[in-house]
Structures are given as C-alpha cells and as structure tokens.
Design a binder for these strands. Structure first.
Length: 496
RNA sequence: GGUCGGUUGGCCGAGUGGCUAGGCAGUGGUCUGCAAAACCAUCUACGGCGGUUCAAAUCCGCCACCGACCUCCA
C-alpha cells in the first residue's frame, strides 16, 4: 500500500504518484455549477468528491489554491446555432433579470455546500466577470490559426488543431469516427466541420446577455470560461483539474484544445473524473427530470423517500463508495448509512471520554491499533479511497468499543498509541472526511433538561418503579430521543 | 452504430493473482429489571462458458445483461 499519494489520472488512464509542479503549492481547479436551477444530489456528489481531494491535500500539508467557478453564462440550451444561453432562457421563463437568476441559484448552491460541510474554494470566479479575458483568449487562438470567424461568431478549427496536436486524447475519441457517427445538428452551415465548436457566439439585440467584442456583440462559447479562469488563477499548466465523468467529453477535451491552441502547453497534469449518482439505476440529471434536491432529502419531502435523511448521512453514504464509481441511491442504502454513521460517531464520543490507565502492554492490541491508524492514511493515499479508509475507521471503532466494554478504560496499550488512536480517529472523521457532529436545536438547554429526566428515571429505577422509568424512556423515544443504560452504570441519550 | 465502464454474499459496497474489506440485515451468545447500545461467535460471494497459471473475483477470449458518453449536464 502506498505511503505517498497516488492519483488515478484520466489522461493517462493510470494511477500515478502525485508530484506537484511547484511544491508545496498545489493548483486545483474544479468545474462548478451552472447556476440556472437548483443543484441536485448528483451535483453535490461531485463537489463532495473534490472536497475530499482538497481536504486531504491540505491534511498532507500542501498549500492548495482551490478554484471552483460559477458558470453564469455560456451554456447553450439547444443546438449550436439556434442555441440560447441557459441563464437567459431561464430569465425569460421566470421573468427575472439574468443576474437575479444567477444570484438566486448561487445563493442556493452555497447554502447546500454549507449544509453538506463542503469547504469553500479559495477563489470562486464567475464567467461574466471574465468576459475580457475570454475575448483575449479567443484572440490568441485566432492569432495562432486555430479558429476562424464567421458572421460574428468564432469557431474552433478541430481539424486544423488535430494536424498538430491530439484532439481526443482525454476521452479516447478519434476525430474520423466522430465525423462519421456524430449526430447531425441543424443550422451548422457556419462551421467548416461539424466537430468544430463555438468559442464566441454572435448575439443579436434579442439576446439579453451579450457583450461587445472585436467580432461584434455576442457571448463566450461553451467551454472557454474554464480554460480562461484556470489559466488566470492557476497558470498555463497546473496540477489537478476535476469534474464529473459527463464533462470529460466534450467539455474537458475542448478545454485542453483551447489551452494548447492559445498558449501551446497542456493545461493540466492530473485529470480527475468523478462517477455519476444514480437513482433507481438511472443517472440523476436535470435533463432527465429524475433529480432529488438535497433539501428534499433533508426534509424527507419527496415521494421517492421514506423519511428525511441528515446531510451527514448523505455525505457518509457517498463516501462509502469510491469517488470514481457510480452510486445508486436508495432508501435502504440511506437507512443503513444512518446507522453505520451513528456507530462511527458514537465511538468518537466514547474515545474522547475514556480514561487512560497505564498497564501491561498487550502487544497484539498495540500492533492492531497502530496498523489500523496507518491504514487510514494509506487508503487515502491510494487515490482517495474513502471506502477503505472508512473500513479502517470501523476497525478502530471496534477497538474503542472493546475498551469501553472491558471496564470503561483504556489499558494494555502505550500512552503514545492511545494518543495516536484518539487523534487519528478524530482527524480522519472530522477533518479528512468532514463528517461533523450534527446537532439539533440548542444543545445546552437540551442537555440540562435531559439530565433532569435521567435523574428522575434513575431514582425510579432504584426503587424498581419500572412503570415510571419505562414511561420516561418510551415517551422520549416517541420524541426521537433514545435512552441508553450503559454497562458502566451511566445513562446517556442520543437523538435518533 | 461508435467509444468507455460495470456485473461481488439477503442488501449496499471495497478489492487487479495466493492473505477476513467494511457497513446494514439475519442467527446464536454475553450484558441488562426489561430494552437499547456495545462486545464475541456465525453466515462468507465474486454474471455464464472456455483459456493462461502451481494458484484467478483479480489476467486473456467469447457470450449474456446493465449503464455512461457520443447533444447541455457534476
């Protein structure tokens, strides 16, 4: 197992040792949301995957500049020529200013990110704030001979590019095949070749989002913003670029082509692609209309769901699967995850409370615990394998619970190992995996009230007044509070 | 049609040549006034057929099924 970070690079299709271009600095770019509607669970998964990448890189001590854009212009709705900007279309539908749409859904996106405990990027650039830079990049591509202008629109010349460079190296596509098998789109007369793509689109007065350019009024093309903003903030070549599998082609392929055509260098050293999230076996996507919003899941407000699930339950379930694999969400999976997460976090509370007692060292136990602690890092080093890391954490949870069961103290291991156990367990759960403790309402008041109820119940129990003690427990259970009489004589509660 | 990926025990889900993944559920036990939690034990699979190998879930071939991408999508 690796003791240094290895990343599966989509570009080379191999797991590679991670060597930053300029250590200890790391440049990380992730394709952000297009803010024309609510982010759904599938989007969340992708951002979570790269949240883990960011967190772990930071954990390893790298100084990471993490750029995740907001796409607020530039995605065409239909085919290339008759296409309308997604934001503009939505603005018409909702009778709002385009920037009102952008603000509304950007706010919603941020809210979900916070709920899911996804850390903010270092820079969150917006495409509309970089129109000038995008125009500059279009100019460079034209100057280098890889784009041509027709009627105020500028198209990337894929064939010309592929004479000199390799278009399709990321997605494994061959341009001859694409020319044969690609579907025919309407009104493509302007393009020299149907595999060419727009980098600047002409827009007449009826378009509500347009900017002046050397080619007349218009708006930037589909894929340009990411090339521009990654270059601007991370340089012409940077370390890691992430996004969902569905962006590999054409979006990321075009990004590579644009950067190479403009600046002559491959933009990215390690390409990472996250797997899709399915519901009932189908990719969850806006266009298929089978998406569940995170808020619906948290409120249980969807006909597809049996009950509400907490943000950390959702987070945990996602992390039980490797980022590159598909996940199929279901009620059963969510309920299992809820219980499993509770086991993990209960052990965290336990280990923080258990006293250490010096004693004869049990070599086997000592070795087991140390090995499990090391495994947490080793598994994360193996292409961010959160599933295996979680397995190791469950191993530690069992060790912790065994201490609790066997006398409610930690003994038989060295103090160093105990400290390692405590810090590893807490660090990986809270910082690396970002599984924060969830609390509902005012904890301090609740704690006070609960300690009163527990006192009354314990008095009843001491008098063998089971009717009273069980009534308290049952009524609390109805209120979703579970009472546990632990082996050590302590009574605790948890919100279930 | 083209390209790529997947098919693992009751369910979810790791895993690329030999060593128990893990979780949830189930079963038996310990503990408990009873529960719950926890612990111990148990159940232990790799789509089908063929091949390579001392050894295959893991490599190769064929077949079946599922999915993604090829058009905006995380």
């Amino acid at each position: 197992m690796p003791d240094q970070l290895h990343i599966y690079n989509s570009l080379t299709r191999k797991k590679e040792l991670f060597e930053p271009l300029n250590p200890p600095h790391v440049g990380l770019y992730v394709c952000g949301p297009t803010v024309y509607s609510d982010v759904h669970l599938g989007n969340v998964r992708s951002f979570l995957s790269f949240d883990i990448v960011y967190r772990y890189l930071c954990h390893l001590g790298y100084k990471v500049r993490y750029v995740r854009n907001i796409t607020d212009v530039g995605h065409l709705v239909d085919d290339a020529d008759e296409g309308e900007d997604k934001i503009a279309k939505k603005a018409r539908l909702e009778a709002l200013e385009p920037m009102e749409i952008v603000q509304k859904y950007t706010n919603g996106f941020h809210k979900i990110m916070r709920l899911m405990n996804i850390i903010d990027p270092s820079i969150e650039p917006q495409a509309t704030g970089h129109i000038i830079d995008q125009i500059e990049m279009v100019k460079r591509i034209i100057d280098n001979g890889f784009a041509y202008e027709v009627n105020g629109s500028v198209y990337f010349d894929v064939e010309k590019y592929s004479q000199q460079y390799h278009y399709g190296e990321l997605s494994g596509r061959v341009i001859e095949d694409m020319q044969e098998s690609g579907r025919d789109l309407d009104s493509q007369d302007e393009k020299r070749n149907k595999i060419d793509f727009a980098i600047w689109k002409n827009a007449d007065a009826s378009h509500i989002m347009r900017w002046p350019s050397p080619w007349g009024d218009g708006f930037p093309g589909w894929h340009l913003e990411c090339s521009v903003m990654s270059t601007k903030y991370l340089g012409k070549t940077f370390d890691i670029h992430g996004g969902g599998m569905d962006l590999k082609f054409p979006h990321h392929e075009c990004e590579i082509a644009q950067s190479v055509a403009a600046d002559g260098t491959a933009p990215v050293k390690y390409w990472m692609h996250g797997g899709m999230l399915n519901f009932e076996g189908k990719k969850m996507s806006k266009s298929l209309g089978n998406s569940i919003l995170p808020e619906e899941m948290i409120n249980g407000d969807s006909p597809l769901l049996d009950k509400p699930y907490s943000p950390m339950t959702i987070r945990f379930l996602m992390l039980q699967t490797h980022y590159a694999s598909e996940i199929d969400f279901s009620n059963k999976a969510l309920q299992d995850a809820e219980k499993a997460l509770r086991r993990l976090t209960n052990a965290l509370k336990t280990v923080e409370k258990l006293p250490f007692v010096e004693g004869k060292i049990d070599e086997e136990k000592e070795t087991t615990i140390k090995a499990l602690c090391h495994e947490c890092s080793e598994h994360m080093n193996d292409d961010f394998n959160t599933a295996k890391t979680i397995a190791a954490l469950f191993g530690l949870a069992t060790q912790i619970n065994t201490f609790k069961d066997a006398g409610g103290k930690v003994t038989g291991i060295s103090n160093d190992t105990f400290e390692l156990l405590k810090s590893t367990y807490a660090t990986f759960i809270l910082e690396v995996l970002g599984l924060k403790e969830e609390s509902t309402g005012d904890q301090s008041v609740l704690n006070d009230v609960m300690s009163i109820l527990i006192d009354i119940r314990n008095t009843a129990r001491a008098q063998k007044d089971w009717a009273t003690s069980d009534t308290i427990r049952n009524r609390l259970s109805e209120a979703n509070i579970i009472i546990n009489d632990n082996k050590d004589g302590q009574t605790t509660f948890e919100i279930g």
